[in-house]
Design a protein around this nucleic acid. Structure first.
Lengths: 340, 340
DNA sequence: TTGTACGCGTTATCAG
DNA sequence: CTGATAACGCGTACAA
């Protein structure tokens, strides 16, 4: 019913060409101020709105960027997306969300769909089951800017924004040692993912630097949820020499561990100290707030977006590897000394 | 460098027309199986990929839907978005995310931007500062399906998916009464927003049905955060006859209230019962888990998406007002009777 | 300063 | 069953 008004309609009304209208609307310097004004006014009067699709087709720019995350209903990724959206929307970009649910197949699918939809860039965090990097090749081939955040693949010519997970693991473990812990356990996850590997390596290095022997028995692979944390802690407490501290790569499994410790009568932090990772909101809400490592997801998203914008404004290929500093947030679950 | 192959390229190669190629690719019944096969094969060989933008320009369908929420980094909205994305992506739709940060101006801006980007539909929850409905008119005028979820505007011809907030307020309050509470306070929010109004009305009705007099002093307007909850509870406890129960429209202010109660030495649920709203993840993680009303956000998103799909497949305008049942999740913060 | 003419990639209409 | 041609709405060399 309501045919959208095009530049042709307004051209006809003014007895000029669509080309002139187009130029006037785009503020082309070669157009007289008089006609410019005239065009703008009648455009407004006729409720003209630029057809972005036509423009996109013509220019090749869609002003859409794709964001791929394992899932959106996690505070960490949601905050990153918020950061990206806040940073990009003032420049007219829209954010298209895709979830992988940690499945490699979904990841491939999403990438194809986004490329197909002609996005101007892809910002993503790889899924846990992502094994090789060949599905990223088409992105590179098409010269679509690709920026990894948090979980990345190390690739030439590709930018990334991560935190120093090694440092995160190191800080967490060193803190536990300073609290007097000597038998420190570690909940890890899929070691093929760089971030979990690095947290583990940081943990290891901190032990080494403080002359504490690594005990392989204390290292457990868990998924990031409460039940797995409970299970893992159960098995730890059955050892003949149970640990007296835990650095968990996940806040959720840290919480599970705490629940199990409490139910077995341990006093935290007196008998046992716990440090998580990610600084999920709930860690600070607990009656026993949990020490954790903050990854500044909001900032991470903002920076990833900035790198994208920089790439868009540059004729050259940019490769930035930005590493943010993790922050240790000390809370009651680990502060033996100043129990505040 | 890598010119994308178009249907012309493959037409040239086969000495046929682009039209034929297009038809073959779209599985048009009037094309011989022979050429169909031929086209598909060479298309694959030449790495042909349909240009969605051109198709969108031609057809007017972008296969993008816009989702507008106050903010994405809240479990409630993130879960809804997840539901929408899960439901829509199998049908080839992409989800574009916009945030209003509860600002009316941003809401107007987002709507315009989405319409401009030619989205096939808009699914949204209005911001708290959204005062009138005139910025929705352009959506209707352009015949773009509009579907509200949770926070809606009551408009003719517009579908919505909400929960029965009256019932939610009623259930929460009735539960408190059953636990023996007789002086029940209520934290509310902006009464111009339907959902908060209805929760209040449900609260009121439950009191009435149980012959408990409404005490205006017990009703406080708070924002949805911990500090405001602390503040509000402080003021309540200063009254000459303080309440013995609280139904809060927000889990966050409920948590603040609990913190204040504890710090003043109250035993929960013995001395005071608390019920929140939204079933935020943290409510279940606490050592003192908080009773709350679940709004099934995932389901809400899925249903909103289904209504959208239904609308897309229908020639007629559909108007569905779907109301989901809230679920009372009883936890320790209010279960005096069976303290489990 | 403005008009002419064409291309972006696809699909629909009308012939044949 | 297939070809020729126009159209979607916009931007831009080239010409005037």
């Amino acid at each position: 019913m309501n045919k959208k008004t095009t530049i042709y309609d307004i051209a006809k009304k003014l007895n000029i060409t669509a080309a002139t209208v187009s130029r006037a609307l785009n503020n082309n310097p070669k157009i007289s101020d008089a006609t410019k004004k005239l065009v703008l006014e009648t455009a407004a009067k006729m409720n003209y709105e630029q057809n972005k699709l036509a423009q996109a087709l013509k220019s090749g720019k869609s002003y859409n960027v794709g964001v791929i995350v394992p899932r959106i209903d996690s505070n960490f990724f949601a905050s990153i997306i918020r950061g990206i959206e806040d940073e990009l929307s003032p420049f007219g970009y829209h954010v298209i969300i895709c979830q992988t649910h940690e499945k490699n197949a979904k990841e491939v699918e999403n990438i194809n769909a986004l490329l197909n939809a002609q996005v101007d860039g892809i910002l993503m965090s790889i899924s846990k089951s992502s094994k090789d990097s060949k599905h990223f090749k088409p992105i590179i081939k098409k010269n679509v800017p690709l920026i990894f955040f948090d979980r990345r693949y190390i690739m030439e010519g590709v930018s990334s924004v991560t935190i120093d997970d090694f440092q995160g693991g190191y800080l967490a473990t060193k803190h536990l040692i300073e609290q007097g812990c000597r038998r420190i356990a570690h909940f890890s996850s899929n070691q093929t993912i760089e971030i979990f590997k690095n947290r583990y390596l940081g943990y290891r290095q901190a032990l080494f630097d403080n002359d504490i022997e690594l005990n392989e028995e204390y290292i457990i692979q868990t998924k990031s949820n409460i039940d797995e944390g409970v299970k893992a802690m159960k098995s730890l407490l059955k050892k003949k020499t149970p640990p007296d501290g835990l650095f968990s790569s996940s806040d959720f499994s840290a919480l599970g561990a705490i629940q199990e410790l409490k139910s077995q009568g341990f006093k935290i932090p007196k008998d046992f100290c716990v440090v998580g990772f990610s600084n999920e909101p709930f860690t600070k809400f607990m009656e026993l707030p949990i020490t954790s490592i903050d990854q500044s997801p909001l900032e991470m998203g903002q920076i990833a977006a900035q790198v994208f914008l920089e790439q868009m404004n540059s004729k050259f290929k940019i490769e930035k590897k930005i590493v943010l500093e993790p922050k240790l947030i000390v809370r009651k679950s680990s502060s033996k000394l100043n129990t505040k």
